[in-house]
Computed example of a mutant assay.
Amino acid sequence: MGSCYNKIMLDVPIQTVWKTVSDFHDMSWAPEVITKVTKVGDKRGDEVGAMRVLNEMFHETLMTLDAGAFTFSYRIDDGPGPVSKDSVESYIGVVKLTESESGTLVEWSSSFESENENEVADFCNPIYGALLSGLKKTLSTS
């Protein structure tokens, strides 16, 4: 089983970070990475089963959302290259926030099955890193 892991520490209260990232249909906090989010279906962005398409390429479904634990998970149903439905199985991404004395730790991880695990990780890790950098930039200017 393959995996990815990225993290960032933000000097922002956990509630502020959660409010920013917890709507599955709103990724306006990373405009340099996600240029278009298309809502699919009738579920709200805070409802399990919500679906979205990112940048007209990544088809994702919200699997869990636990506001009390500041975490959510999603699956990639289809995507480009190494995360296409023909190349990867059981791709689950997890975003978890943890409060500390110095701010909020944001962890973005994933697990998946693929014959090309390194290719998937090499594809996804830079995206997660860029998303976390976008989150930091957005929250430091708001």
Rank of each mutant, 00 (worst) to 15 (best):
A30H: 02
E32A: 06
V33A: 10
V33G: 08
K36S: 07
V37H: 00
V37P: 00
V37A: 03
V40Y: 08
G41N: 02
K43N: 11
K43S: 07
R44M: 12
G45C: 02
D46C: 08
D46T: 13
G49K: 13
R52C: 13
L54W: 00
E56N: 15
M57K: 08
F58K: 03
H59K: 10
E60F: 14
E60T: 15
A67L: 08
G68P: 07
G68Q: 04
A69M: 11
A69H: 12
A69K: 13
F70L: 08
T71S: 10
F72I: 11
Y74F: 11
R75K: 13
I76A: 14
D77Q: 08
D78G: 03
P82I: 10
V83L: 06
K85F: 03
S87F: 03
S90K: 05
Y91R: 09
Y91T: 00
V94F: 04
L97I: 05
T98P: 00
E101R: 01
E101V: 07
E101D: 15
E101N: 13
S102Y: 06
T104A: 05
L105P: 02
W108H: 06
W108T: 01
S110D: 04
S111C: 06
S114E: 04
E117F: 13
E117Y: 01
N118P: 00
N118A: 13
V120I: 08
A121S: 12
D122I: 07
D122P: 01
D122H: 12
F123A: 12
F123M: 09
P126C: 11
I127A: 14
Y128N: 15
Y128S: 15
Y128Q: 12
G129E: 14
L131T: 04
S133A: 15
G134M: 15
G134Y: 14
L135R: 09
K137D: 03
T138A: 07
T138C: 15
